[in-house]
Write a protein that binds this DNA or RNA. Structure first.
Length: 472
RNA sequence: GCUCCCAUCGUCUAGAGGCCUAGGACACAGCCCUCUCAAGGCUGGUACGAGGGUUCGAAUCCCUCUGGGAGCGCCA
């Protein structure tokens, strides 16, 4: 059963998607899903100058990767689009006209320098920088005169001189601000370009958005947008302002500071569901401590469980969820996950087998590189300590191992049994030298599985090598 | 400069006056399990930014300060 709930994510395609935006998108998406509503994606590409080629497509790919699916968007119109603001010029023009007709907006002829001077003056005298109202009272003749002199006006919204603007924020609670503290703000640039305050809120209303989850940085802008809706006679959505997501050092994420992007995490090999499980718990509480499947995410999301304090991006916690995610990967998916580090010619079956063998000891695909050498290549030189352990077991031990291996093959149980009988060794004294000789390291999957996975010639070679090792 | 927002273990968080000698998770340390690592089990240390109030009682309410952030753009 569909409800009337409609949420959206409205990124501007300037650069890559950061975890903070991804979280906002995820929350909005889950919010809609949890309420049987719809989730919209709108691209706010009104600033062509700042837009990088392919940024929108890249961000959409990131969202898609995370499993954030939009019911309507640039590539999926539902009749209320277009979902790119660059294609909505006619709609904006129509509403500019209405605002002007209604007396809620007026042309402003002030130049950038004039405004700058006013701003500086106000700042210098301890006043908040606000539009001084120069063009507010211009009559028809004055306007005509300016137009005639060739000046192209911008359009400004006429903010009421008194009264309070009130709204109840989903996460911040009741808000109230005096209209008088707001200056008349711009809604259309002199070149005809639209301005965020305007197109953003207008599109939300026109697209039927009922609940807006967005960054904290918009909280103090909300009253302006509410004024706009009121002037236009459009319904207002419920707002929920999410605290910022900070870098590990506590500073806001930014391109300049090289904050991690979603694309980077993906390239490193982090799994989408690990990222989701992590983001779900940043600034949102109430989810159980255990792993949640992609399909179960929406069921634990609660809009009334959103936090107010900013959170720091913490790789260690992401890694915890990554470990959980890797453990839960289906065999085929695990092989795909490791694809970047497998040799090109490797057959599918081998890949799946290797992935199954190693995944318990991997956090990222890169971690598998050394293990690949264990399975197919040359072992790195042993440390002095490891040499000592191998030497302690003795040449006889490894000679016996070679003999037994020749008979029993790659099954550990009979091999261990026979070695135990012939050398008297057991437990760690038996297994550890074998592990070191065969893998060159102390950690890793079960020895039985390793023995079965390492090609027999390599096993023979390594056992023979171990028999040659003497303590330093 | 002005306005607004935020503040609990290293990190994510629970906490809406007594249930808090502050709970959980991650991380860390120790032990158990075990051929190793991981997983799992058990145990442990670590936090209410500071100062004033209000109250019988404050992490929770009020004020001040401190620290952080945002907005005030012909950026979004």
């Amino acid at each position: 059963m569909k409800s009337d709930l409609v949420t959206r994510f409205a990124p501007s395609p300037t650069g890559a998607l950061h975890p903070g935006n991804a979280r906002t998108a995820l929350f909005s998406f889950l919010f809609a899903r949890a309420g049987n509503g719809r989730f919209l994606l709108r691209i706010e590409d009104t600033d062509q100058a700042r837009e990088g080629a392919g940024d929108a497509a890249a961000q959409m790919a990131d969202l898609d990767w995370l499993g954030i699916a939009w019911d309507a968007g640039p590539d999926r119109d539902d009749g209320k689009g277009p979902y790119r603001q660059s294609e909505r010029g006619a709609i904006y023009r129509e509403h500019y006209h209405r605002l002007e007709q209604l007396g809620h907006a007026y042309p402003c002829f002030c130049s950038a320098t004039e405004l700058d001077i006013a701003r500086r003056t106000q700042l210098a005298s301890g006043q908040p920088p606000r539009y001084p109202g120069t063009c507010r009272g211009l009559d028809a003749t004055a306007r005509a005169a300016r137009l005639a002199s060739g000046r192209r006006p911008a359009l400004r919204f006429r903010v009421p001189e008194s009264g309070n603007i009130e709204f109840d924020d989903l996460v911040r609670g009741p808000q109230s601000i005096a209209a008088a503290s707001l200056g008349d703000f711009l809604i259309r640039r002199a070149d005809g370009g639209t301005v965020f305050f305007f197109c953003n809120v207008l599109d939300d209303a026109l697209m039927g958005v009922t609940h807006v989850l967005r960054g904290d940085d918009h909280l103090s802008n909300t009253p302006r947008q509410l004024l706009l809706l009121q002037a236009l006679g459009l319904p207002r959505p419920v707002y929920g302002h999410l605290p910022l997501l900070l870098d590990p050092d506590g500073l806001p994420q930014s391109k300049r500071r090289n904050s991690v992007t979603v694309a980077q995490l993906r390239e490193e090999g982090f799994l989408a569901d690990a990222v989701s499980n992590y983001l779900l718990r940043l600034g949102h509480h109430g989810a159980p401590d255990r792993w949640i499947d992609r399909d179960g995410l929406a069921a634990v999301f609660r809009a009334d469980h959103l936090g107010r304090a900013p959170a720091k991006f913490d790789r260690t916690q992401l890694e915890h969820w990554q470990r959980e995610a890797v453990l839960r990967l289906a065999p085929e998916a695990a092989a795909d996950w490791l694809a970047p580090i497998f040799p090109d010619g490797w057959p599918r079956v081998e890949r799946v087998k290797a992935a199954e063998l190693l995944r318990g000891n991997l956090l990222l695909p890169d971690d598998a590189r050394d293990w690949l050498a264990v399975l197919t290549g040359e072992l790195p030189a042993l440390t002095a300590e490891d040499r000592a352990q191998v030497a302690e077991a003795g040449a006889g031990f490894f000679e016996a191992a070679q003999d037994v291996f020749a008979e029993t093959g790659p099954a550990l149980a009979p091999l261990a049994e026979r070695l135990k009988a012939s050398t008297g060794r057991k437990g760690a004294a038996l297994y550890r030298p074998l592990r070191i000789a065969l893998t060159g390291r102390h950690d890793g999957p079960e020895l039985a599985a390793l023995l079965a996975a390492i090609p027999a010639p390599l096993v023979r070679e390594r056992l023979a090598n171990a028999a040659q090792i003497r303590a330093d």
